[in-house]
Amino acid sequence: MSEAHATLVAEQFDDVVQQHQAASLGMWVFLATEILFFGGLLASYTIYRFMYLPAFEVGSRHLEVVWGATNTAVLICSSLTMALAVRAAQLGKKKHLISLLVVTLIFGLMFLFIKFAFEWRNEYLDHLAPGINFDFAGPHARHVELFMVFYFVLTGLHALHMIIGVGVLTGLIIMAARNAFSKDRFNAVEIAGLYWHFVDIVWIFLFPLLYLIGGRYS
């Protein structure tokens, strides 16, 4: 974008600082919304977990805990590269920025691939997909299904956020390649970073809540 400097500050703002602060605050407020969005689900999950703990433990044992742990590691690494990308953007290092964003993108795609190919697919083949092919012979079948409902809704909603994040990263890479960012103009990278870290943190909560319910290794 050759006119990048002409459009540095949108007309409703007085200066770059005000624009930058507004964008950051906007993202933080959005994340507050997101917390309540996941919060409603997590509260419901917690209540049912208290009510039907044995069934939830049974359900948890049917998840792919190794792949889940792998994905946790993948996401933590992606958070590191994202944080470095934001730093690179602040310093105006274009090449660093692009390569770090690409690595973050690859981590994100890796997470999604593992989720689809090694987790959801296996659970579907094991007849654990509620409402589609759920077939569970043991006791508490109804409440194991309830666990799987929450598993799919929580991880599905998280994956949806990951897919949006992957789209955002792709957009950032294209913009960076077209010289849209500079030392004075890195808002978009920074707030995308906030979003990415948030999605990462949600997973940090989901992993123990879903995969590591008490008694797995006893």
Binding site: F37, G131, E145, V149
Partner: peptide, 21 residues
């Protein structure tokens, strides 16, 4: 608003897939 949004999602899922939420 996000709480009603997610509640409506759960409601629609229960209605469409007959899963007990």
């Amino acid at each position: 608003m996000p709480v009603i949004a997610i509640t409506m999602v759960l409601l629609v899922l229960e209605r469409l897939f007959h899963v007990g939420i």
